[in-house]
Amino acid sequence: AQASVVANQLIPINTYLTLVMMRSEVVTPVGIPAEDIPRLVSMQVNRAVPLGTTLMPDMVKGYA
């Protein structure tokens, strides 16, 4: 199964992502692939992302 990117903490709206904020986990539904974690660093979330939430492409500015 493919691992997705999951929030490792509460990520406030407009926060620039860093490695410590994200982890990879096999979840349903599938979100942003874990292999894209390096690409996500320094990208901004466009909403608050609670701890344990799967990151979806529409949550990250400029990802989709």
Rank of each mutant, 00 (worst) to 15 (best):
P12W: 04
S24H: 14
P38K: 15
Q9R: 05
D58E: 14
S4E: 01
Y63E: 04
E35G: 15
R47V: 13
I11M: 06
S24T: 06
T18C: 03
V20I: 09
R47N: 12
P29V: 04
M21E: 03
T53W: 09
M59I: 08
T54D: 00
I13C: 03
V60A: 02
A1I: 15
R47Q: 15
R47D: 10
T15E: 15
I13H: 11
V41C: 04
R47H: 08
S4F: 03
A3V: 07
L19E: 14
K61W: 12
V30C: 03
L19S: 04
T54Q: 04
T15S: 14
M22E: 00
N14L: 07
V6D: 01
M43S: 08
P50V: 06
V49N: 01
A7M: 07
M22W: 01
A1W: 10
V20A: 12
V60T: 02
P33L: 14
T54E: 02
V26L: 14
P57Q: 10
S42A: 07
P12Y: 05
V5I: 15
M59E: 03
Q2F: 14
L40D: 00
Y16V: 11
A34T: 10
E25A: 11
V60G: 01
G52N: 06
P50I: 07
T54K: 04
L40G: 00
A64W: 04
P50A: 11
V60Q: 01
N8R: 12
I13M: 08
V45S: 13
T54R: 11
I37D: 00
K61F: 11
T18L: 07
R47C: 04
I37G: 05
I32F: 03
L19N: 10
S4K: 01
N8Y: 07
T53H: 15
R23Q: 05
A3H: 07
N8E: 08
L19Q: 10
A34V: 06
A34K: 15
V60E: 01
A7R: 01
V45R: 00
V20S: 14
V41T: 08
V6Q: 04
V41F: 12
R39Y: 08
Q9I: 14
V45L: 10
P12I: 04
E25P: 02
T18Y: 04
D36I: 14
D58L: 12
Q2V: 13
A64F: 05
A7E: 00
M43A: 10
I13G: 14
P29Y: 03
P50Q: 12
N46T: 14
T15I: 05
P12T: 07
V6K: 04
A64H: 06
T53K: 11
A48V: 11
D36C: 04
T15L: 04
G31H: 02
V6Y: 02
M43I: 04
P50H: 07
G62E: 07
P33W: 09
S24W: 11
L40T: 01
V5W: 02
I32G: 00
I32E: 00
Y63C: 03
N14Y: 09
T28Y: 14
E25V: 14
K61P: 15
A1R: 06
V26M: 06
L51F: 13
L19P: 15
Q9T: 15
Y16K: 07
G31N: 01
P38H: 13
A7T: 12
M21W: 03
L55Q: 01
S4R: 02
T53P: 01
R47Y: 09
I13T: 10
R47G: 08
P33F: 12
Q44W: 05
N46D: 11
P29N: 13
P12S: 11
G31L: 01
M21S: 12
D36N: 14
D36K: 09
V20Q: 09
P29K: 05
D58Y: 14
L17T: 00
V27R: 15
A48H: 07
V49I: 15
E25Q: 13
E35K: 07
P57A: 10
L17G: 00
L10V: 09
K61Y: 14
A1K: 09
L40W: 01
L51S: 11
L55F: 13
R23P: 01
L10G: 09
N46Q: 09
S24V: 07
I32W: 02
L17D: 00
L17C: 02
V30D: 10
V27A: 10
V5R: 00
A1D: 08
I11P: 01
Y16N: 09
V27I: 09
A64R: 02
M56V: 13
P33E: 05
Q9L: 12
I32Y: 02
P38R: 07
Q44I: 10
T18M: 15
R39N: 13
T15P: 00
P38N: 15
I37F: 04
I32N: 00
R23V: 10
R23Y: 09
V26C: 03
Q9W: 08
R23A: 11
A3D: 12
P12E: 14
D36A: 10
S4M: 02
G62P: 08
T15Y: 09
M59P: 00
S24R: 12
L40R: 00
D58S: 13
V6M: 06
T28H: 14
L10H: 15
A48G: 10
G52P: 00
T53A: 12
V6H: 02
M21P: 00
N46P: 03
P12C: 03
T53L: 05
A48D: 14
V26N: 12
N14G: 13
P29T: 09
T28G: 11
M21H: 09
N46K: 09
M22N: 00
T28L: 07
V30I: 13
V5F: 01
G62L: 08
V41Q: 07
V27E: 02
V30W: 10
A1T: 10
P12L: 11
V20K: 14
T54G: 03
V41H: 06
M21C: 02
Y16C: 04
T18V: 05
Q2K: 10
N8G: 10
I32A: 03
G52A: 09
N8T: 13
I37T: 08
T15G: 13
A7G: 04
T54Y: 02
Q2C: 03
V45I: 13
M43R: 08
A64V: 13
T18Q: 12
Q9E: 12
V41I: 13
A1M: 12
D36H: 12
E35P: 07
N8Q: 07
Y16F: 11
N8V: 14
E35A: 13
A1Y: 08
Y16E: 11
Y16W: 12
V20M: 10
A7V: 06
Y63I: 06
Y63L: 05
A7N: 02
T53Q: 15
N14R: 06
V30K: 08
L19Y: 11
M22F: 12
I32L: 07
A34W: 15
T53C: 03
A64G: 10
T54I: 11
N46C: 03
A64Y: 04
V20P: 13
N46L: 11
A48C: 04
L40M: 07
V41K: 06
Q44A: 07
